[in-house]
């Protein structure tokens, strides 16, 4: 490999509405590991307008050099502007590696940048190690069921980091970071960002619930959601959630969606029912206290992050749970549901 001593790994920070995203500290953690393995120097860049205070925040917390790139006309994240600006600036920054988040933003600018720079592209990186012939990056592949190790064979590298996989360094004052302001005229974009509209918001009580019962496509049909509702009913503070496909199918409203483009939850107990475990979903629930996964696919990826794995048909298992739980905790409540009760 050809990385010289002064070459850099540059983290491209995510921010919106004047705030840095928490994922940036995970990107910095990944860059820190890369710096050690590859002998690079860590730096960061924040692109947009009025980004100098954000660059200052990164410099203060991590002690690295940060470029505050004031891009004319880029009032909010705009993938095309970001990609063009980075393509212009990176060579002068001696960037051997560029690190972004595996987010809807990172996925908008990073692959095209890699193509433009003729760089190796490593998407959704979850770990790295030093191999005999250079660094190896790991990610999950094939429906999240396989761990794939990639070795770059060209430089520079463009990688996106899977959120929730590199532990962020605790906040502190590393001090002595340096902020350099760069002013860039508006890049020659063909697309024009008109506005950013807030999401409909999630108010399915997901954030407050101590227990979340979540449905995936493996639930099979909308009617089976009733079983999940009754399962949720066993707990005093429970909410029903769904993966994106379940919400797309209209089985649950989008307010119930957990995952990359939905809510992030961390209840005490998460019961995943018929959920495959694709990363887009698991980033939204992997911080849950105790995870139970029920699926009839024995190789489902969800089992790799569950505390308890149950390979079973939901329509058999949940009725068994309901029957035993009712019989155990409060036989009267089951009686109460029986038709023909006198009175």
């Amino acid at each position: 490999m050809s990385a010289g001593a002064k070459s850099r790994v540059v983290v491209v920070a995510e921010h919106s509405q004047g705030r840095l995203s928490p994922v940036n500290w995970e990107l910095m953690a990944c860059a820190g590991q890369m710096a050690r393995v590859l002998g690079l120097e860590v730096a960061a860049a924040v692109l947009g307008q009025g980004v100098e205070p954000l660059a200052g925040e990164i410099a203060q917390r991590t002690g690295v050099k940060v470029w505050a790139v004031e891009v004319e006309g880029m009032a909010a994240f705009h993938g095309e502007a970001q990609r063009l600006a980075l393509a212009q600036l990176l060579p002068a920054w001696r960037a051997q590696a560029v690190v972004g988040a595996h987010s809807t933003s990172g996925l908008d600018w990073a692959p095209g940048l890699a193509a433009r720079l003729e760089a190796a592209y490593l998407p959704g990186v979850e770990g790295l190690s030093a191999g005999p012939e250079g660094p190896r990056f790991s990610r999950t592949a094939h429906y999240g069921k396989v761990r794939e190790e990639l070795a770059p064979t060209a430089w520079p590298l463009v990688l996106t980091v899977q959120p929730g996989t590199f532990p962020a360094a605790p906040p502190g004052e590393a001090g002595h970071g340096e902020v350099e302001v760069v002013r860039l005229p508006a890049p020659p974009c063909r697309s024009q960002l008109l506005e950013v509209v807030d999401g409909a918001g999630t108010d399915a009580g997901l954030g407050r619930a101590k227990v979340v019962v979540a449905a995936g496509r493996g639930v099979g049909q909308a009617e089976n959601l009733e079983l999940l509702r009754r399962l949720a009913g066993l707990f005093s503070s429970a909410a029903l959630a769904g993966s994106r496909p379940v919400c797309d199918l209209g089985w649950l409203g989008y307010g119930h969606q957990v995952g990359l483009t939905g809510a992030t939850v961390s209840p005490s107990l998460y019961i995943a029912c018929g959920i495959s475990g694709a990363r887009q979903h698991t980033v939204g629930m992997q911080g849950s206290g105790f995870i139970v996964a029920i699926s009839n696919d024995p190789q489902a990826a969800i089992f790799n992050l569950a505390d308890v794995c149950i390979v079973e048909d939901l329509t058999v298992l949940i009725p068994a749970l309901l029957e035993q739980a009712s019989g155990y905790s409060d036989p009267a409540s089951l009686q109460g549901d029986l038709p023909g009760r006198p009175g």
Binding site: E118, V146, E148, E149, A151, T153, A154, Q286, I310
Partner: peptide, 28 residues
């Protein structure tokens, strides 16, 4: 190619992953 797949392995288990055995009633 600018990257090469050098290994495919089962994913790491990030939690205990205790697999419950037996009939559905026993698992429940």
């Amino acid at each position: 190619d600018r990257e090469k797949v050098v290994a495919l392995t089962p994913p790491e288990k990030r939690r205990a992953g205790l697999v419950l055995e037996g009939s559905a009633a026993q698992k429940a």
